[in-house]
Design a protein around this nucleic acid. Sequence first.
DNA 1: GTGAAAGCGCTAACAG
DNA 2: CTGTTAGCGCTTTCAC
Lengths: 344, 344
Amino acid sequence: MDSPDLVMAPERGRLKMADIARMAGVSISTVSRALAGNPLIPKALRDQIVEIAQTHGYVVNQSARSLRLRKTDTIGVIIPLAHEAGQTISDPFFLEIVGRLADEITRRDYLVLLNKVITTEPGWLDRIIQSHRADGLLIIGQSTQHEALNSVADTYRPMVVWGATMPGHRYCLAGSDNREGGRLAVSHLIARGRRRIAFLGEVDAPEAVQRFEGYRKGLDEAGVAFDPALVIPSHYTRGDAQRAVEGLLASGVQFDAVFAFSDVLALTALTTLQRAGKRVPEDVAVVGFDDILLAQHSTPPLTTIRVDLEAGARTMVDLLFRRMAGASSPSTISPVELVVRESA
Amino acid sequence: MDSPDLVMAPERGRLKMADIARMAGVSISTVSRALAGNPLIPKALRDQIVEIAQTHGYVVNQSARSLRLRKTDTIGVIIPLAHEAGQTISDPFFLEIVGRLADEITRRDYLVLLNKVITTEPGWLDRIIQSHRADGLLIIGQSTQHEALNSVADTYRPMVVWGATMPGHRYCLAGSDNREGGRLAVSHLIARGRRRIAFLGEVDAPEAVQRFEGYRKGLDEAGVAFDPALVIPSHYTRGDAQRAVEGLLASGVQFDAVFAFSDVLALTALTTLQRAGKRVPEDVAVVGFDDILLAQHSTPPLTTIRVDLEAGARTMVDLLFRRMAGASSPSTISPVELVVRESA
DNA sequence: GTGAAAGCGCTAACAG
DNA sequence: CTGTTAGCGCTTTCAC
């Protein structure tokens, strides 16, 4: 019943190299070489084989290729999440850095394997490395995993971590100057006459610790006393930050400024304060960190510490490819910059 | 020279199942079964083998597993880009939908393979499918690839496309009601007394066509004449949109409102108009489409057509997994909603 | 130049 | 319950 046309239609099923070889009347090896552009095969034959493969929609099976070659042409982008924080990949900061990384990786004809991991499960990193799904790993944020990272760094080279320098880190790190950022933010607030500056954020991950140290340093430099009552712990989610700020307001502790760990937290603080009847910056000034896209568009626009994510992503990918090629590569800390808008 | 401690240190090299088998004194099959939790192997032995694997940091090689099993536990997320548009993954709309999809996919213990493709290269879709890197495909936006999608749909089932319904589409589609969205936007503007409403965007991809049709319909319903001079083509990038709006201003064509294809374009229009001394919404009202996060935070906040991306992503992933399980699944169009803020 | 054959590391049918 | 064995589809050494 089949019409000849249907029989002629390109077979879209599971073709393999052997099928192409049969059609071309050559061996599998020859097809493999031809498809790889190996000059050992005369150009005419090569073109003919490529042509046959193309008309039949044949493409090399990557699982087989990866198994044989021990390479995947894929970069794993790992987002370590603390389970309890309930943070998702949809967080604007992650999204922005992932987007930049994806652009950079794609430009080098590699694929991006996105991987959200719960760091409370021990061995998470080994599991990713040993699964051999990627030729290299980009870790977005150390979270609390400094030790885990250090312990694989000696044996697993193609890995670059975005985060903060820790004493004795042996993994390749890229990041921004968190301590200086914190100092800049607080100095700016103090220059604007603020003295009761709250720190909003969780002081657990190294980046947070360093931003907090910068906060302390800024205070010290100006001779402003540190008040523990002004440290308000909050996870990285909006809900949590809102509760934290409401708690501060309810506590009766006086404050005239908030320096937040991130723009996401700062923006939440902004709206929470405004909803509570505070004027920003008149009653309370707010400074964030990261300079995500949203920061420019809030009302009032957010004063923040700018991290150049585009450059950061490019650096990470550069470092990674250098390591994948066998070279070593130094850790890199890029400078930050105070962007004064209207919230402080 | 090696100290015993070093010799005892867990070997982090390329272990394979055979190594674990040797250590456990069993065959490779037994290890394979034990690691897969196969109840055929007595629990005690199973635990012992898992223990050995764990202490030595052994993890199954996924290339080998995928080759054998013909499955990868990976979902490909494809972002088709028209080459000339210069659009990157860093576009806020893509980022938001990718983030949502990644959350959904991760929740099902699959990995996300991010894939930016240039659709001007013929055979791009076949190439992705036949490379067998993913068990299913999510395509973000039909772009101009309706035919390409249709032609694989009959033979390749596990694929879901985000976009607009096209006559005779045979692939599974999820999307929002673009035509109704366009109509709602224009009706709202007309209700606010606007009559000279410009349409900003490229009318190429089906989604754009339908939004444009809704625009026409809204005009018709109110008996407002359509003026071709008010259609301003613009690619999806900021630079292009800015040039387009500046062109409109320079042309001298009168207009009192802009309905943009997307929020990204609308936000660019907003700032471009303001920089040109126009007040929004007093002089020119602006309505966008998508309701990206930024839309709430612009000054003034953007009136827009809300697409529920979280629900949309969930739907796409649901449909895909149903198809991967062999079931068929219907295309789904979700409703849109007018969100009135202050720009119109 | 080209092909035969080995093997990348794994799973599962089959045999015991 | 456990082991032997045959591939999954590819690349590359080695021999011709």
